[in-house]
Amino acid sequence: MSVTRPTVCGMANDVLLSASGLTKRFGDFTAVDGVGFAVRKGESFGFLGPNGAGKSSTMRMIGAVSPVTAGELRIFGQDPATNGPQIRARLGVVPQHDQLDQELTVEENMWVYGRYFGLSRAQVRERAVELLEFAQLTERAKDRVEPLSGGMKRRLTIARALISTPEMLLLDEPTTGLDPQARHLLWDRLFRLKRQGVTLILTTHYMDEAEQLCDRLVVMDHGRIVAEGSPRALIRQHSTREVLELRFDVDDHAEYGAKLAGIGDRVEVLPDRLLVYTEDGDTAAAEVHDRGVQPLSSLVRRSTLEDVFLHLTGRTLVD
């Protein structure tokens, strides 16, 4: 039997997280400037943006550790200002920088953290075994944390965040600084969690990560949301199907911008290359050739969220 609860702000009752006009100021500086979003149970939702966009500040408010300056925020339908501990009891948090006790062992870090959630000693031991298996750290369980690789520490932080069986996992740049193999391993673990029904909230400045992991995302810049949608919808809406990337043997690529005008839908000039947005990259490449322009290199690729970001803000995401 299902229980129907009244809907909040006209949204469906499986909304786990909602914000409107959410603002965070540090002194005079506004880090998060009136953002709004809603995330449903089981969704994976991303905040994509460059350094300083306000992603971590938003995540810390969602984590009920950073007080909201203005606006409304509800997590599990509760107000973090009054129900912080109750909210945090149901969250798993992976902060941007690992906060592990480097001197303790891997399993000790797990046990200690589980106790903060009021789990019994037997419970934390049992969960630690399962989760270290999940994070592929079983062999290292009795080792000190300090000498572990960055990827292992990241996996440990994620395993630790899962010890209380959270309903929502907050991941602040889960794979920044990891090598490709370590990233893929982490993505795989996050997929599994998603399949188990855990709601994932993550920030990233990697396009491929956002495309891989997020059902839906918002693009943030200077504390504001500049676009929202599924990765595919955002690309469709703000970019073209394909992109032709051209590099020339010049210091200033702008001089070629004019020569290519009219090819494709639009041409974007970057310091080190030109991007021609078009439905058909090969045809565009042929047109470039017909105009007698000789690039050093030319490459046709699919449009990505990077292009969306560039179009929306005029800047690249990772500089």
Binding site: P85, A89, G118, S164, T165
Partner: peptide
């Protein structure tokens, strides 16, 4: 303890448990 490891609202921790976790 079971409820604290499951979904939905979790039973709150007593002061003794919260402080005890830190001293532990």
């Amino acid at each position: 303890f079971t409820a604290r490891g499951g979904h939905g609202p979790r039973p709150p921790l007593a002061t003794r448990e919260r402080v005890g976790a830190v001293t532990g």
